[in-house]
């Protein structure tokens, strides 16, 4: 039997395995039970684990996360689902004021082993509030880890790690990748560390840094640069945005001297700005060109008919890379 799975199926596998492994793990959110989640990530869980562990909650994001914080302080391992990241702002207050602070506030007496899962990002022709990339809201909040998988296998391994982590983890799922990529995801995979980037392609002339759905466009651009220009690119998939694995990025930047960051978050104050600053601080003398940024614009995600105009395209990524290479 093939173990080829989509990201949705891989996340579902991780949930099944972790809930089986830890009787204290609880999933709660809107439509996560009988419906199996609107993207089917929690399909079949309620049949296996019952209504006490798979909870269809009232429609209230702050209530979901606030209740989950209480559960976590009492020793459970809640996994809270926000139906879309665009609705997570209702819960942001609970995340910032309590999930991120409870260990610190209580001097270690309490901690909050909570995962807040949320689909995020554009590219699936969804409604307003369903397509934004607001990861920096979370990466800029002390006391949180922010994780963004890029494919089925690392999604499965990172979700396992997030559930086992003793502190709050914001787990952003790039829904453009939910069903667009299939890969081998065998059962019983080990978790990945929550502070390490992955080196997904070796090259020596330019470093691409990306994550989530944009990693796939970045890889396409790298292919094109190889084919059309004979340029070999190093490609880094961040996986965990906070804490940022700056060392892996800086090491590659020091070898290639050229860096392009690709993200669908709005450009100003975004992840690319932090990465560019780290590269400038730690690899300045090795740089041959300014760090390039291919990001979303500082505008709202357009309604879906024009969302591709907002998102970084393979053309934009390739052009920025060529500018950086020719600088």
């Amino acid at each position: 039997m093939s173990d080829k799975r989509t990201m949705v199926d891989a996340l579902n596998l991780a949930l099944h395995e972790e809930m089986k492994r830890d009787d204290n793990a609880i999933l709660l959110g809107e439509d996560v039970g009988v419906d199996g989640g609107i993207f089917r990530v929690s399909k079949g869980l309620i049949e296996t684990f019952g209504e006490e562990r798979i909870i269809d909650t009232p429609l209230a994001e702050s209530g979901i996360v606030g209740t989950a914080i209480g559960m976590a302080m009492a020793g459970l391992r809640p996994i809270a689902e926000m139906q879309f990241s665009g609705f997570s702002y209702f819960a942001y207050h609970q995340i910032e004021s309590h999930a991120a602070r409870m260990r610190w506030r209580s001097r270690g007496r309490y901690h909050v082993p909570l995962v807040v899962r949320m689909p995020y990002g554009g590219g699936v022709r969804a409604l307003e509030h369903h397509s934004e990339s607001r990861e920096v809201i979370y990466t800029h909040t002390p006391g949180l880890r922010t994780v963004i998988p890029s494919g089925p296998k690392n999604a499965c391994q990172l979700l396992k790690a997030a559930i086992r982590d003793p502190d709050p983890v914001i787990f952003l799922e790039p829904k453009a990748v939910y069903r667009s990529v299939k890969e081998e995801v065998p059962e019983d995979l080990d978790p990945l560390p929550l502070d390490k980037a992955a080196h997904v392609r070796e090259g020596d002339e330019l470093t691409f840094v990306s994550y989530g759905a944009m990693l796939h466009r970045t890889l396409e651009a790298a292919d094109r640069l190889q084919e059309e220009d004979g340029i070999s690119c190093d490609v880094i998939d961040l996986l965990t945005l906070a804490p940022l694995d700056a060392a892996t990025v800086v090491k590659s930047a020091s070898q290639t001297g050229r860096v392009v960051v690709v993200t669908e978050a709005p450009q100003s104050y975004g992840p690319a700005a932090e990465i560019a600053a780290r590269v400038a601080e730690d690899a300045f003398v090795k740089l041959e060109a300014p760090v390039g940024r291919v990001a979303g614009y500082d505008i709202h995600m357009p309604f879906f008919a024009r969302e591709q105009s907002y998102l970084p395209s393979v053309d934009r990524i390739t052009d920025t890379a060529r500018y950086t290479l020719e600088f």
Binding site: V65, M71, M73, A74
Partner: peptide, 13 residues
Amino acid sequence: SQLPHAVGLAYAE
């Protein structure tokens, strides 16, 4: 903001 925490603690019990 502490009210939902009490609900979660009670759920755990």
